[in-house]
């Protein structure tokens, strides 16, 4: 059985809905990690049931709390808009209709001073579990349940084996690895879910590699932060 019992029981979370509240907070949390620091405006595009029943489930509050870095069991979710104001963040909600996505899906756009930094799409697939399905123009598959490395690199021969070598040197086992690119020879994205915690030193070693453009680490924190 490849499903952990903690994908069934838990998360310990703020109600009322594991998919619409906890899952929403987690997606936004992971998306904000991917976007990095420095955004001051966030636009949430709500699809399907997120749009239809989101308001009564606190989805809007959970999403806003998530981009502020609050986890699904953070009691501040209830007053998320207060904290959004304190942070000087601007948040907007829109109705979107996306193709071939789960019923509970949100597309999150991050802006700094009117300039778009990043766009992340994620789905809440039940029981508080989530899946990030798209980052900018790349199709991805990130659960956030395991420590994850997000690497952007030039699409050149040998880069992937260089990356794998750095991980092996640091005794990190690769769980899953997905590679996608927009065009041959262009910019590619590598997503690696690992079995163990990824230290900061690993990111530095990866950044030192030729043709690696950026490295981001997602720890598994969005999951059960302050149980």
């Amino acid at each position: 059985m490849d499903k952990s019992i903690f994908e069934v029981l838990g998360p310990v979370m703020i109600g009322p809905s594991s998919s619409h509240t906890a899952g929403a907070a987690r997606i936004a949390n992971i998306a904000a990690h991917i976007a990095g620091k420095g955004f001051n405006r966030v636009v949430f595009g709500l699809h399907g049931s997120f749009y239809e029943t989101g308001r009564g489930h606190g989805t809007h509050k959970a999403l806003a709390a998530g981009v502020l870095g609050f986890g699904p069991s953070d009691e501040r979710i209830r007053d998320a808009f207060h904290y959004v104001e304190l942070a000087g963040l601007q948040v907007e909600f829109r109705h979107v209709q996306l193709e071939n996505v789960h019923e509970n899906t949100v597309c999150i756009e991050f802006y700094r001073d009117g300039q778009k930094l990043c766009e992340v799409t994620g789905s809440s697939i039940g029981g508080g579990n989530v899946e990030i399905t798209r980052i900018d123009s790349f199709d991805v598959k990130i659960s956030g349940a395991n420590p994850t490395l997000l690497i952007r690199q030039n699409d050149k021969k040998g880069v992937v084996s260089d990356i794998a070598a750095v991980l092996a040197d640091n005794d990190i086992n690769i769980g899953t690895m997905t590679l996608s690119r927009t065009a041959r020879g262009g910019v590619a994205t590598t997503i690696i879910e690992t079995d163990s915690v990824i230290g900061e030193g690993v990111a530095e070693s990866l950044m030192g590699l030729e043709n690696v453009l950026s490295v981001r680490i997602l720890d598994a924190e969005g999951a059960d932060s302050d149980v």
């Binding site: 998360p11 310990v12 703020i14 109600g15 998919s19 509240t21 979710i77 508080g128």
Partner: peptide
């Protein structure tokens, strides 16, 4: 009732069925 008041619960397997 705790869940519907945005209080702390343990999803099992979901919050709606907690």
């Amino acid at each position: 009732e705790v869940n519907a008041s945005m209080g702390k619960i343990c999803a099992c397997p979901t919050a709606g069925a907690c």
